[in-house]
Amino acid sequence: MRVAVLIDGGHLRVLARKAGFKHEPDYIEKVAHACIEPTENLLRILYYDCAPYVGTTTLPVSGEPHEFTGSDHWLRDLAARNLFAVRRGVLKFRGFKPKRIPIAAKPLTDADFKPDFEQKGVDMRIGLDMANFSALKTVERLILITGDTDCIPAMKHARINGLQVALVTFPNHKIAPELLWHSDFERRIAWPAA
């Protein structure tokens, strides 16, 4: 059976870090290959994520300028690997938010706030690829790593068009039941050794 693996990078990053693993290209590749069963023939691994935010902003209390720096080298590394394709969304800076709520009565400092970022375009790209696979019939099964219920319409579309959707779950993590309702089956995998 021909398959494609679709990975929501933000979701995988959170789960891997909670489980004590480093979210980097070698480990992402190990996780992707751990999702494939011996009877399946891999067409492609699609990885969806955003490069780190780069830009200058003003700190919320002091008003001092603060520069966000980062590199997309790891995304380029991943894109160069066999059978990988990287689909990039955009990371937007939405300001600063308090680290703790309620806010303490003491005088606030910049250290009491953290940056608030929002991923844009990742879910849409996952949905478009699922729709393309449904239309072109290049695979028979989609293996999906996500925790985002925004993917449900694309999952429904794929299933209506004859593709199977396998939802990957990991140890010690509860997935939204709605995602399971709209997949054909749950594929539980153990974290690969680092």
Rank of each mutant, 00 (worst) to 15 (best):
P102V: 09
C50Y: 10
L59R: 14
L46D: 05
L163K: 02
W181C: 06
L12S: 02
A16F: 03
E37V: 06
L15N: 02
I45N: 00
L42G: 08
V86T: 07
P171S: 09
R94G: 02
L167M: 08
A190F: 04
I126R: 06
D77P: 00
F170G: 06
W191Y: 12
G89I: 09
R2H: 06
I7K: 01
K114P: 00
A131V: 15
H23D: 12
G147Q: 08
V90A: 11
H182K: 12
F117A: 09
L167P: 04
A154H: 08
D148F: 05
H157M: 10
K99N: 13
G70L: 03
L144P: 00
V139T: 01
A105S: 11
A34E: 11
L43M: 11
G20H: 03
G20A: 06
L43D: 07
P25G: 06
F93P: 03
H73V: 08
C151N: 14
R125L: 15
Q164K: 15
F21R: 13
H157F: 15
I175W: 07
K174P: 01
T149H: 05
E67I: 06
K30N: 00
F133N: 01
A176M: 11
A158C: 11
F84E: 01
V90Q: 12
A16W: 05
L142C: 03
K106W: 09
P60E: 05
D129Y: 09
K174N: 13
D150P: 03
L108F: 07
A16Y: 06
F133P: 01
G70N: 04
P65S: 13
P65K: 12
K92H: 13
W191F: 12
Y53C: 11
L142V: 14
P98R: 09
A105E: 11
T149D: 09
P115Y: 03
W181G: 02
L12M: 09
K120S: 11
G121V: 13
P25F: 04
H73M: 06
I175K: 07
L75C: 05
D112G: 07
M124F: 10
R187K: 10
A154E: 09
A51W: 03
D26R: 12
G70D: 04
M124K: 04
I45W: 00
M1I: 07
Y53P: 09
S134W: 12
A105C: 01
D110P: 10
Y47F: 15
L108Q: 15
R88V: 01
P25H: 05
Q164H: 13
P153H: 05
L12R: 06
E40D: 10
H11V: 06
E67P: 00
L12V: 04
R81M: 09
I145T: 03
D77E: 12
L6A: 04
A158K: 04
E67T: 15
F113N: 07
S134G: 15
H157K: 10
I160T: 14
P65A: 09
A79E: 11
R2F: 04
V3A: 00
N132G: 14
C151V: 14
V122Q: 08
V31N: 02
F133E: 02
L179E: 08
M130H: 05
R2E: 11
E37Y: 02
T56I: 13
